[in-house]
């Protein structure tokens, strides 16, 4: 349904040009959940904002690539045409529900304004749809709640409202940018269950941006691991969790705190991500990679398919590297 090809996004600043997204390829099938995981600053949010064409410009710019949605390239659409896609075909959920709602407008107004904008509805019809959405996301006393303001809701309730707002025009794709990060753990679980329920009921596709592998394990179908503006490994949930091939993916999985290992420090990936003002020529992870070879620092690895759904960008997958490893013991 959605296919992103070779997406490049840059931000021009006083200090130079930041290459935030450097050639992202991904696709989302109907009714599935794709999780994009990676550490802060790896370009996951920029990618999702680019899909919505919500990159602040200037300084941001989509410099190359294609975002094909239902046969149309969103990159080349006019701003006006894009407005008819936002909220209607593709919706977005933001990280912090405390700031995502306008404090001076009632929940009802904010919930229904998307409907009024995009569909010819009567006041009664809009209200009926709003009540339906409030019910779907699990807000009690919807009739009364519609007249209230955001400050009269708790964080979890606000996130439910944000979700209701995103879903009211029945979009086909929902982009959730760290939807549970700002919530406490019990509320997180409730919101994740809500996502599952919504997907089952409406068949909406979800792109879930997160750095929380626990969240991913719970609701993702496929996982894309992002690092320094590129997707370094993508596969089904099983493939990523049980057969990770990229050293970065392995590192990420190892760094998840575990209850069954007593004592000791949390496993961390040493070093920091590269500076995206001047990204390295070769593999961006090479400087932090325990298996880095000479070639890694000079040439960017080619994509290797391990299965129809599992691709990885790593020189270790190259036949020659495998041969090398087989003949000589690693250093």
């Amino acid at each position: 349904m959605l296919e992103v090809q070779d997406l490049h996004v840059t931000f021009t600043t006083y200090g130079g040009t930041v290459k935030a997204v450097r050639g992202v390829d991904l696709y989302v099938n109907e009714g599935e959940t794709l999780a994009i995981v990676g550490e802060s600053g790896c370009g996951k949010s920029v990618t999702s904002n680019a899909i919505m064409r919500l990159i602040p410009s200037p300084p941001g710019k989509i410099t190359r690539g294609m975002i094909r949605f239902k046969g149309e390239d969103l990159v080349s659409l006019s701003e006006k045409a894009m407005r008819n896609i936002r909220g209607v075909d593709i919706s977005m959920i933001f990280q912090d529900p405390m700031t995502a709602l306008n404090p001076t407008l009632t929940i009802g107004t904010q919930l229904m304004e998307g409907l009024y904008e995009h569909q010819k509805v009567t006041g009664q019809e809009a209200k009926r749809r709003a009540l339906e959405m409030m019910d779907l996301v699990g807000i009690p006393n919807p009739e009364e709640r519609l007249k209230q303001y955001p400050h009269q809701f708790s964080g979890g309730m606000r996130q439910r409202i944000v979700i209701a707002i995103a879903l009211i025009c029945e979009p086909e794709l929902l982009i959730a940018d760290e939807p549970t990060t700002a919530l406490d753990v019990t509320i997180q679980a409730q919101i994740l269950e809500l996502f599952e329920k919504i997907q089952k009921q409406t068949g909406v596709s979800i792109i879930l941006i997160t750095h929380d592998l626990g969240v991913v394990a719970k609701i993702a179908d496929r996982i894309a691991v992002m690092y320094a503006g590129k997707i370094v490994e993508v596969g089904t949930k099983r493939e990523i969790f049980y057969q990770p091939e990229h050293p970065y993916t392995k590192g990420l999985l190892r760094s998840v705190p575990r209850l069954d290992l007593k004592g000791g420090k949390l496993a961390a990936i040493e070093g920091t991500p590269p500076d995206l003002f001047s990204p390295p020529e070769g593999c961006p992870f090479a400087a932090r990679c325990a298996y880095a070879m000479e070639v890694c620092t000079h040439v960017h690895p080619v994509k290797t398919s391990l299965s129809p759904s599992h691709q990885v960008d790593c020189w270790l997958q190259d036949e020659r590297a495998k041969k090398l490893l087989a003949t000589s013991s690693p250093k």
């Binding site: 896609i85 209607v88 977005m92 995502a100 407008l105 998307g114 904008e117 707002i165 995103a166």
Partner: peptide, 26 residues
Amino acid sequence: TQDYIKMARAKGLSPWKIIIKHALRN
């Protein structure tokens, strides 16, 4: 620069509606 303005844009509202209804009042 507030999130609710970005949210209003993500709803596909027209720029004028965003300015008058969402930004100006605040």
